[in-house]
């Protein structure tokens, strides 16, 4: 049986206690997307600014949630800031693969990561600190906590693509 230390790694607690990129961005120009975990009521808000070169020039995270959802959102914001949208999507896919491919979407339309998608993804993406969240897969009910921010991010990218 997996213990608490598998789930609550120190880096996770650090991001929970001191979340990075927490706050809001002015909309417009930023894009705002809300995500909900219907199981527990957690809400997350992702604000993204993308520049003319397709770069995620800024990202802020709002909302409330448990240590897993909040730390995952915090690490996500660091992982995708300054990356291109395509790179950010690849990181998202890699992270969701880390979280098990059977996880079903909870973030809204357009954010499903189906198993087939992963075959085409470069497996060499370095997730860095995010790998600390790997222990979450041993606690299946918490996977949705970890993926909430990422599903919301995917939805935000889809919305931005539709708008442009």
């Amino acid at each position: 049986m997996a213990g608490l230390e598998d789930l609550y790694r120190e880096i996770i607690l650090d991001h929970y206690r001191t979340p990075r990129n927490k706050g809001e961005l002015e909309t417009p120009p930023a894009h705002r997307t809300e995500g909900f975990n219907p199981l527990c009521g957690d809400e997350i808000v992702v604000y993204i600014d993308t520049d003319d070169n397709g770069l995620v020039s800024d990202i802020k995270i709002g909302g409330q949630g448990c240590s897993i959802s909040q730390s995952s959102a915090s690490m996500m914001s660091m992982a995708v800031k300054g990356k291109t949208v395509d790179e950010a999507r690849q990181i998202t896919s890699a992270f969701k693969r880390l979280m098990s491919i059977h996880e079903t979407n909870v973030g809204g339309d357009g954010s499903e990561a189906e198993a087939d998608d992963f075959d085409e993804i470069d497996a060499d993406i370095d997730l860095g600190d995010l790998e600390a969240l790997q222990g979450v897969v041993k606690f299946p009910t918490r996977i949705k906590c970890a993926t909430l921010a990422w599903n919301t991010l995917s939805q935000a990218f889809d919305e931005i693509a539709e708008d442009s």
Binding site: G3, L4, L7, Y8, C40, D42, Q64, G65, C66, S67, I68, Q70, F139, R142, C145
Partner: peptide, 11 residues
């Protein structure tokens, strides 16, 4: 958070 409380309680 309640989720974290319940996780420790499960231990």
């Amino acid at each position: 958070h309640a989720h974290d409380v319940s996780q420790v309680l499960d231990e």
